[in-house]
Design a protein around this nucleic acid. Structure first.
Length: 484
RNA sequence: GCCUCAGUAGCUCAGCUGGUUAGAGCGGCGGACUGUUAAUCCGUAGGUCCAAGGUUCAAGUCCUUGCUGAGGCGCCA
């Protein structure tokens, strides 16, 4: 193929190219007035206007310039006569690389529903909305690595297949090469996993945290960023069966260092996108405004997308303890009026409606809640000292709650005291045999350390303003859905 | 897993208390158009009303079951 110039380059760096002949390739977004082709090659939010003179080009060729057909155009770049763009390309040569017969092609040059586009995941990335989302998704992923690299963290690849089912984060997908219809059996009739590939039962990982702790206790500061699997039957706009999670783990960090890291990290990611993807954000912002035009006022966002992102980076996150949260909730208007469906009571977990009140009504910004009751949190979270005014024991856990999507981060300081950890595992029926190495980490050269898990798609959702998590991952896996 | 709502043309939807040949906008197709920007204008075709059963003289409309999707909740990131 002859060399092409990317459309983003043409549109942003055109001074030196005006008057020159260039070649561009991309997908047709519109063919107006038998003269103007809006061409997009995925590099930019904006299209290049290609101007055709039908007397100079074959009529049959121009008839194939359909919506989303892929074409190659060579011609002279000139200053545009029209008002909508700086430059345009006068087509001297036009070639159809891939036609798109509109009588069969399902995509149409108009707004289509998210549900319909989800069924067309192989085409939806050609739309403005999804190309913007996926450019931003890339930008956030890049910023994750840049942030950690620039701050002295090491990227650790924790296993996708795990031999432990004690990671305490929900139902797991089994991994096996045994024939499910006819597996080998032991004498007592159980499946004989000693004949399986790994000679033991294995699952897809639900978290890289326990292994990340191994890294932290050697390299000091590590992070993981990889796929994570939960076999929960979750049917919501913020859950996936396969998602990407970022898990920093840091030696010598306590819960407060952990909160500082979480806040700084979130702000860095948002700032990176504000700085590098303004066109995408403006498009998504206006998209939401159009969507909300017909909604009643109370259902609309209080602030625009970009305004929300600026607000989050410009303000400190609110930090409260679980006990304070319970007190705030119990003296709140909706509580007194009986508007909450679930009871607010020390010892019970905060429900989505409670978190939403704190984030969206009370503080109107991200909130970090810490020091949750020990009974409702995982075995590895560090036990706090007893406090007189608090009804029960708490652990040094923290959740970062964002407006609209709720929990984006869950983390904790880890229990480094061997005896306390063993007691907790016994209390919660976590088998020591499976996590012998986790215990030895405390026995030999242990230290205080902390970390958290950030749901990557939830962050992408927040930054792009997309309402459903299935629309910020290219190929969503949810209960009953693994197409593509 | 639970609750609520929806499924009618390629897409988005209208179709009233059941009543003849089921509608619109957009998209498609045919045509016009050399300065358009969600281009515009004229013409035109296009339907197993999600599926199966039932009630009725008569069902897109009512009932039952199932399937699919969405929203909310739970589980969490």
């Amino acid at each position: 193929m002859s060399k092409r110039t990317e459309i983003k380059t043409v549109l942003t760096d055109f001074d030196s190219r005006i008057g020159q002949e260039i070649t561009v390739m991309g997908w047709v977004r519109a063919f107006r007035s038998n003269r103007f082709i809006a061409l997009n090659d995925g590099t930019s939010m904006n299209n290049l206007q290609v101007v055709v003179d039908f007397e100079q080009l074959d009529e049959q060729l121009l008839k194939q310039v359909h919506f989303h057909a892929c074409i190659k155009v060579t011609g002279q770049l000139v200053a545009s006569q029209g008002a909508g763009q700086d430059v345009e390309l006068l087509a001297a040569k036009l070639e159809i690389l891939g036609g798109a017969n509109p009588e069969e092609y399902p995509m149409q040059p108009k707004a289509q529903s998210m549900e319909f586009l989800r069924e067309k995941a192989h085409f939806r990335m050609r739309t403005n909305t999804f190309s913007a989302v996926f450019r931003i998704r890339h930008g956030i992923a890049y910023a994750v690595h840049k942030y950690f690299n620039d701050n002295g963290y090491f990227y650790l690849h924790t296993p996708i297949i795990t031999g432990s089912d004690a990671e305490g984060a929900g139902e797991m997908f089994h991994v096996t090469t045994l024939d499910p219809a006819n597996p080998p059996r032991t004498e007592d009739g159980a499946v004989d996993y000693s004949q399986d590939f790994f000679e033991k039962p294995t699952n897809l990982t639900v978290s890289g945290q326990l292994q990340a702790e191994i890294g932290a206790l050697a390299l000091g500061k590590v992070y993981t960023f990889g796929p994570t699997f939960r076999a929960e039957n979750s049917n919501t706009s913020r859950h996936l069966a396969e998602f990407w999670m970022i898990e920093p783990e840091v030696a010598f960090y306590d819960i407060f260092d952990n909160m500082d890291l979480a806040e700084d990290f979130c702000k860095y990611l948002i700032n990176h996108i504000l700085e590098h993807y303004p066109a995408e954000l403006e498009f998504l912002d206006s998209r939401i405004q159009k969507l909300e035009q017909n909604m009643p006022k109370e259902q609309r966002r209080a602030m625009g997308l970009i305004e929300t992102l600026r607000f989050v980076v410009d303000n400190d996150f609110e930090r409260i303890t679980y006990t304070e949260a319970v007190n705030i909730l119990r003296s709140s208007k909706p509580y007194k009026k009986g508007k909450f469906e679930y009871e607010v009571e020390w010892g019970k977990d905060l429900q989505a409606e409670h978190e939403r009140f704190l984030v969206e009504k009370k503080f109107k910004k991200p909130v970090i809640v810490r020091d949750y009751p020990a009974e409702i949190k995982a075995f590895y979270m560090r036990m706090n000292e007893e406090q007189e005014q608090i009804p029960g024991r708490t652990v040094a856990a923290m959740d970062v709650l964002f407006p609209g999507i709720g929990e984006v981060i869950g983390g904790s300081q880890r229990e480094e005291r061997l005896d306390v950890l063993k007691a907790r595992m016994a209390d919660m029926n976590v088998p020591e045999e499976e996590l012998w190495w986790y215990l030895e980490l405390r026995k030999f050269g242990g230290c205080p350390h902390a970390g958290f898990g950030l749901g990557f798609e939830r962050m992408v959702q927040f930054i792009t303003g997309m309402g459903n998590i299935r629309d910020v991952i290219a190929f969503p896996r949810t209960p009953g859905n693994a197409e593509f």
